[in-house]
Structures are given as structure tokens and as C-alpha cells.
């Protein structure tokens, strides 16, 4: 009478998925851009609006693109780590100041420190859309050929730096 065991079997399968599901993060959406060329942008610098930065200028080096804003609360959480990383000189960090006001952004950097080689502005979030940004902060690792290799959603943590980002950078630079 195996057919009476079928409901139980179906239930066991279901429980398996639910158990795995408990350890997943349903709100993190992996980026389809990984392994693809980073979208090209050209935008004003935050500090010197009369100067522009084009993403192609960074070809040939490994760099981080960190999306941040002065209104973003969890950016404050990762900021000390970024400042420290910048000080170590391992990798240049470029900031994308996302949907922010210039004076507020500058004031924020004064207060918390400026880890960025330069920051470019994206007042209307258009570069953000190209990069698939949906929650700030986000951090992209981009290689020498301008290909996105990794995307960190949410604040950078000690753990994510040590386990993923730094080893990856070493590999890409090497």
C-alpha cells in the first residue's frame, strides 16, 4: 500500500526545501551583470564638478565601485572599513554618490572621512539603474578589463572583506 505513503513523501520533500530556505536570504538578488563588462558612465566629480570621470579611465587596474549616499544609514556602518581599506592602499575605491545633494554629501565625507580616490555623482540614479543598484550601499569589484567580478549587496563587513573581496582582488591583481 505504498500509495498511502505518497503524502508523507511529498511532505518530506517540502520540509527539505523549507529547511534549506531558512538559511537563504530572500531579499538578496544576485546581479546578472557579474562576468559582464561594467556599464560605461561618464559623470561629474563630487569635489570638482567641472571635472568628469569616465569609467573607461580605470581600464587596466582593479578597482572598487562603492555606491553610497549621505541619507543612507547603513553606509555609516561600512564606512570605517572602507576608510581603513583605502589607507592600506590595496585597491582604489571609487565612490558613486547616489541620489544625493552635493553639500550634504561633502559634509558627510568631512565628518566620517573620505576613502574614495574620487567620487562621481549620480543625482538622478541613472548610473544606478545601469548597474542594477537597488539598495545602498552596494560595492562592485571590477577587474582590469572592466568586467564586474563581484557585487556586495548591503554594507561591506569584515567577514565579506576577508572571505570574498580581498582574496578576489589579490587574484585579479596577480
Amino acid at each position: 500500500m505504498t500509495r498511502f505513503l505518497l503524502p508523507l513523501a511529498a511532505f518530506i520533500v517540502l520540509v527539505g526545501f523549507l529547511a534549506v530556505g531558512l538559511n537563504l536570504k530572500p531579499r538578496e538578488v544576485p546581479s546578472p551583470l557579474i562576468g559582464k563588462p561594467a556599464p560605461v558612465f561618464q559623470s561629474q566629480l563630487l569635489h570638482e564638478p567641472e571635472r568628469m570621470l569616465a569609467s573607461q579611465d580605470n581600464l587596466g587596474k582593479v578597482w572598487l565601485l562603492n555606491v553610497w549616499a549621505s541619507w543612507c544609514v547603513s553606509c555609516r556602518e561600512e564606512h570605517p572599513l572602507l576608510v581603513e581599506l583605502a589607507r592600506s592602499g590595496i585597491v582604489p575605491i571609487y565612490g558613486l554618490n547616489y541620489k544625493d545633494k552635493r553639500d550634504l554629501a561633502l559634509q558627510w565625507l568631512n565628518q566620517y572621512g573620505d576613502p574614495y580616490t574620487v567620487s562621481v555623482v549620480d543625482p538622478e540614479g541613472r548610473i544606478g539603474i545601469d548597474y542594477g543598484v537597488y539598495g545602498v550601499p552596494e560595492t562592485y569589484v571590477i577587474d582590469k578589463n572592466g568586467v564586474i567580478r563581484h557585487k556586495q549587496i548591503g554594507p561591506v563587513t569584515v567577514e565579506s572583506l576577508e572571505k570574498k573581496i580581498l582574496p578576489l582582488i589579490k587574484e585579479l591583481q596577480g
Binding site: F4, L5, P7, L8, F11, I12, V15
Partner: peptide, 9 residues
């Protein structure tokens, strides 16, 4: 649920 379905089977 598991024990109920087992009982059922």
C-alpha cells in the same frame, strides 16, 4: 504533520 501522515499511511 509527519506523524499524522505516517499514521495515515
Amino acid at each position: 504533520i509527519g506523524s499524522s501522515l505516517l499514521l495515515f499511511a
